[in-house]
Computed example of a mutant assay.
Amino acid sequence: MKSYSQNRFPVGCTGYGTTGPIYTESQQQGLRDRSPNLDVLRALAVGFVVVSHLLIEHSYTSIGGYHTQSLGTLGVYIFFVHTCLVLMQSLERQCHTYGNRPIALGFFVARAFRIYPMSIVIVVLVASVEWTFSDTPPSLFAFLSNVFLIQNLTGSPSVTPVLWSLPYELQMYLFLPALFTVASSGRAWRRIVALWCASVALVLLLRRFGLGFDLIRFFPCFLSGVLAYCLRNTPRTRPPFLLFAYVGAVAAIFPLLVEMRLSATVLSWVICPMLAMIIPKCREVKSRWLQRCGDTIARYSYGIYLVHVPRACQIFYVERGHEIILRGLFYDRCNDHEKAQEAESRIPIPVELIIVDPPFETATTG
Results as ranks from 00 to 15, higher is better:
291 Q>G: 09
264 A>L: 04
151 Q>S: 11
121 V>Y: 04
55 L>A: 14
45 A>P: 00
225 G>V: 06
39 D>L: 02
48 F>H: 07
213 F>D: 11
165 S>K: 05
134 S>W: 05
42 R>H: 05
12 G>P: 05
171 Q>D: 10
151 Q>E: 11
65 G>T: 13
80 F>N: 01
215 L>G: 05
16 Y>K: 04
182 V>W: 09
278 I>R: 03
231 L>C: 08
331 Y>L: 14
133 F>Y: 13
34 R>D: 06
243 L>D: 09
291 Q>F: 01
166 L>F: 00
207 R>M: 01
239 P>I: 05
17 G>W: 07
98 Y>F: 15
230 C>T: 11
31 L>Q: 01
93 R>M: 03
203 V>T: 14
316 F>E: 11
119 S>C: 08
270 V>L: 15
17 G>Y: 09
307 V>C: 11
347 I>Q: 13
236 R>H: 03
332 D>M: 09
82 H>S: 09
246 Y>F: 15
52 S>K: 01
59 S>A: 08
224 S>V: 10
26 S>I: 03
355 I>H: 09
280 P>I: 00
186 G>M: 11
79 F>I: 05
277 M>Q: 06
318 V>R: 00
338 E>H: 15
317 Y>A: 10
256 L>G: 11
174 L>C: 06
25 E>D: 13
162 V>P: 05
68 T>Y: 08
6 Q>S: 11
223 L>N: 02
151 Q>I: 06
259 E>D: 14
330 F>D: 15
259 E>Y: 15
347 I>H: 15
327 R>T: 14
9 F>K: 11
127 A>K: 02
163 L>W: 08
174 L>R: 05
355 I>G: 12
174 L>G: 00
164 W>G: 03
161 P>Q: 07
295 D>W: 09
39 D>C: 08
366 G>R: 01
106 G>V: 08
9 F>G: 09
53 H>M: 07
301 S>H: 01
351 V>F: 03
126 V>C: 07
159 V>R: 02
60 Y>H: 14
345 S>V: 09
90 S>I: 06
217 R>M: 07
197 C>T: 10
83 T>L: 09
111 R>G: 00
190 R>N: 11
279 I>S: 07
21 P>E: 10
344 E>K: 11
220 P>Q: 02
239 P>T: 14
80 F>Q: 03
195 L>R: 01
23 Y>T: 04
39 D>T: 00
180 F>I: 00
27 Q>A: 09
218 F>E: 06
7 N>S: 15
333 R>Q: 13
287 S>I: 10
146 N>A: 01
303 G>Y: 07
275 L>N: 06
30 G>E: 15
12 G>D: 07
292 R>H: 12
263 S>G: 01
319 E>Q: 12
340 A>G: 14
